[in-house]
Design a protein around this nucleic acid. Structure first.
Lengths: 303, 303
DNA sequence: CTTTGCTGTTTATGGCGTACACGGAGTAAT
DNA sequence: ATTACTCCGTGTACGCCATAAACAGCAAAG
């Protein structure tokens, strides 16, 4: 079992970014395999996904799949991008086609508060990601640091990055915030996926299982903070952990953004002239269109 | 492969909470198995941990292990508590023995700022957890919602919960914050573990691998936010993702705590008398020792 | 001396991903 | 028409995994 070694990555890229299918002929096809695999994973989780079961579901032999997909790992990559496409229909400006190709500082945040500002946009994106992972819990079970993004994955990523342009965050901070938020959503979703998996496997609900662990609870009396919180009802009706965590995270980001807003450079990065600051609206970065153009050309040539 | 079904959970509890070993005789023993398994997982990750390899390392047959451990899952639980014990030597008040069994409101925070306050304590605990996961990256790979905690796991948990007593947070919020922080540490550690795993498997460093994906980068031009951030150096020297995330999270928690502090009840929960508030120090909850005792007895009887 | 219990071994089952050699069907060149 | 080549699906086989079941050696207890 040389799991994960089969096929070269670039072939994976080709598959992920292939153009729309054109073969509704009978027989196997990449699209059919991927869709069958998604159904299977929806029902049984990622660990229940095996090449054999996918093939059975389609009425072919196991090895027939390998004529279309390099291996299991690449199949998972394809499944991921397949379902990430679902959420894009509700997010019209997440695709590259409809995004404005305008001047470098006129991002989707030209009117900072028209759509709730960065916080509203980020929260919305996080919630969409969360709902997608409720529909397809195996999505969070896709682990590993070398999963190739398909067009839909990149569209989502770009959308979240775009939600923060126009804030005073430094570029590296924008990247860090989006990464943090993404990992948060995945961590919460992973918890959910794992709970479902255990319940599927054992037929016993999570509550029942933990409720039956008397032999464990007997030993917890000696832990003071735990006991006190137990007595004061800390576990009686728990917070919704996604909503709670998301709020804390966004609050934390807001603190940073405010800090950066206060210390925002007061001088034009091109010529050093002090900037006139308007009392409201998006703070300007350059003192004039001329400096803005100059900076743009400079970026173009060096990048 | 009936993975994870073997043995009943209560047996697992007995093993985890067993008293210290007393058999240094030759031959196999639970402790020896667990330690060998830890070494193996340190070197090869959790997916590289197999019963065969553990047995080989000890010079016995695979099945001999099953005389001492119910199955692989329980072995992992035991490994977890084994290494969680490492971090306790540096955290003297994390164990149940030395914890003060004092009056119900005199937690370890009697002097709120002597040790950095809740924030200092929480950050310290999170960093210890993080360092432990750097030493044993497989710790974060232990997934599943039904892993039994051993004494060391509970001690850590109790310690983090205790870090927040004395704040105005509601009990359910204390639980939520500690859970959130724990999942954050695990998510970051999981990333690290996965990176190491891929590098071990392929012999190619993460940077090299992604650097060679030209066929992917070619397609990313059309994504505006991504491109702009790329040009402005968003990935040139990335933030340290643990430190960055931890700071955001703690900032977010701080916002909540401040909010709760402002709206803190101004009346004694026992008798309703308005409280005199001191300008500094820990805000009091009860108007008098008498009310405090009354509330304590009440909790005792109902809990 | 027999019984019981503990410990380690042997053998076997069923699951997994996938390498490899093969066979048939369609298509293009000779 | 024959040949050659490519695409697609199949059958078999390998090596890995966890673990169930029966068995063998040994010690203490009856």
């Amino acid at each position: 079992m040389a799991r994960g070694v089969a096929g070269d990555p670039d072939h994976g890229v080709e598959l992920l970014w292939r153009d729309a299918e054109r073969e509704p002929r009978p027989g196997l096809s990449l699209g059919r395999i991927v869709r069958a695999a998604v159904e299977l994973a929806d029902a049984e989780g990622l660990e229940g996904l095996s090449m054999r079961k996918v093939a059975d579901r389609l009425g072919f032999t196991t090895m027939s799949l390998y004529r279309h997909v390099p291996g299991r790992d690449q199949l998972v990559d394809l499944m991921r991008d397949e379902v990430l496409g679902e959420a894009l229909v509700a997010a019209p400006d997440a695709g590259p086609e409809s995004a404005p190709d305008a001047a470098p500082d006129a991002g989707p945040d030209a009117a900072p508060d028209a759509d709730g500002g960065w916080r509203g946009r980020l929260e919305e994106a996080a919630r969409r990601a969360w709902e997608l992972r409720i529909r397809h819990p195996w999505l969070a079970e896709v682990r590993g640091s070398r999963h190739l993004p398909g067009p839909n994955a990149v569209a989502h990523y770009d959308h979240m990055l775009g939600a923060l342009t126009g804030t005073a965050l430094r570029p590296s901070e924008v990247v860090a915030v989006v990464g943090l938020l993404g990992r948060f959503v995945d961590a919460e979703a992973l918890l959910l996926a794992e709970t479902r998996r255990e319940e599927r496997r054992s037929g016993v609900s999570e509550q029942e299982w933990w409720g039956a662990r008397d032999s464990l609870y007997e030993r917890l009396d000696r832990y003071p903070a735990l006991s006190r919180l137990w007595e004061t009802g800390g576990w009686d009706d728990p917070e919704d952990s996604f909503t709670f965590g998301l709020r804390r995270l966004l609050d934390g980001v807001e603190v940073l953004i405010r800090e950066r807003d206060e210390n925002r450079d007061e001088k034009c990065p091109e010529c050093g002239t002090p900037l006139e600051t308007a009392p409201s609206g998006r703070p300007r970065v350059y003192c004039s269109r001329a400096c803005q153009q100059r900076a743009y050309r400079k970026r173009r040539s060096t990048g």
